[in-house]
């Protein structure tokens, strides 16, 4: 690539200009340095996650209990199977990408088209899966109550199995309260959505079912959540509980510390955004391949450059997978 380079007459001399000491084209080298800076951004997020996790090391949510859904297996406890499948899909799309790059080196246009198409499909499946994970996480499963100090209390039966709020609450239709909206009452003031059950209904239901116990956020030495005795449970529920939490958002998280939800949304969201933009860039390059742009250029280096970005997305996921789902 020396189309626009002015000759200085000092070519061949070390400091004469026109040298490529790194033997990489400008575009590829800059893609590497962009990846380096993006990697540092992700490391910053993951290190901040690690900070918060170390801060609450003995009360952090257990990932196996949070991400245990699998499509079409409703109610089946399937810890990590789905995220393992997602990881596999992303690694596979990385493989098809590198195969596309390899085919590009041999100027095999049709192979590049096929492999890039597969890569794009893989990326789309991954983003869709990520959205599905978010949906499950936001919706929640069993529900929990929150104390004044912001700690989450979950309900279990005598065998330690989780019990959902809907199986506990005793409905009191006389006490149903209308949602306060902006249009009524004080102007332009609204309240957050009302939970399905009130604290009173949960307390009443809990008192009526003697086999129910409360599980706190605290982890014991073996890494299990602490379960309180019936007396302690009743005392805690009646003295400290101020709210009902269903699902997860940026302020409340029925699985435990809200920081877990914050970092999950932020980091997987940022990664999902990378996957999405990677898919978009891949599609652009895919059309260029279809149109024969690189065939005429006799170089598929653009495929290689988007390939670098795509592998980077996979690389980040390897770390996100470890630190959110495994460790």
């Amino acid at each position: 690539m020396e189309t626009a380079v002015t000759k200085t007459g000092t070519e061949g001399k070390t400091w004469g200009g026109g040298n490529q000491p790194l033997k990489a084209s400008y575009g590829k080298m800059m893609m590497w340095f962009f990846i380096l800076s993006d990697a540092l951004t992700f490391s910053g997020f993951l290190a901040a996650y690690g900070f918060s996790r170390f801060k609450f090391i003995d009360s952090w949510p257990i990932a196996d209990e949070v991400f245990n859904h699998f499509p079409f297996l409703h109610g089946v406890d399937a810890p990590m199977y789905y995220v393992a499948l997602m990881t596999f899909i992303l690694i596979f799309s990385s493989v098809t990408m590198v195969l596309a790059v390899d085919a590009g080196h041999h100027l095999k246009k049709n192979k590049v088209i096929l492999y890039m198409f597969l890569t794009i499909v893989g990326g789309l499946i991954f983003v869709g899966s990520q959205a599905w994970e978010w949906k499950n996480f936001i919706k929640g499963e069993f529900g929990a109550v929150e104390t004044r100090g912001g700690n989450i209390l979950q309900f279990v039966d005598a065998d330690g199995h989780r019990v959902a709020l809907k199986d506990i609450a005793i409905f009191d239709h006389h006490n149903d309260r209308a949602q306060h909206e902006r249009k009524n009452g004080l102007w332009f003031v609204k309240e957050s959505p009302l939970p399905t059950y009130t604290v009173e209904e949960i307390k009443k239901g809990f008192a009526a079912k003697p086999n129910l116990l409360i599980r706190t956020q605290k982890l014991d030495e073996k890494g299990h959540k602490t379960i309180l005795s019936r007396e302690e449970s009743l005392a805690k529920l009646n003295k400290e509980v101020v709210g009902v939490v269903e699902g997860a958002n940026l302020h409340h998280n029925e699985y435990g510390s809200p920081l877990f939800a914050d970092f999950f949304f932020f980091i997987t969201g940022f990664h999902g955004f990378h996957v999405f933009s990677g898919v978009v860039i891949n599609i652009i390059i895919f059309f260029n391949v279809l149109l024969g742009t690189y065939e005429r250029r006799k170089s598929y280096e653009m495929v290689e450059k988007v390939g670098l970005y795509w592998h980077f997305v996979d690389l980040v996921w390897v770390f996100v997978f470890t630190f959110f789902y495994l460790v």
Binding site: P21, L22, K23, A24, M29, W32, S94, V95, M97, V98, V101, G307, L308, H311, F312, D314, L315, V318
Partner: peptide, 15 residues
């Protein structure tokens, strides 16, 4: 991933 897929093994030492 870095060495094989991103082909870091083929780049120069400096890069």
């Amino acid at each position: 991933i870095t060495w094989a897929f991103m082909h870091m093994e083929g780049e120069t030492k400096g890069l």
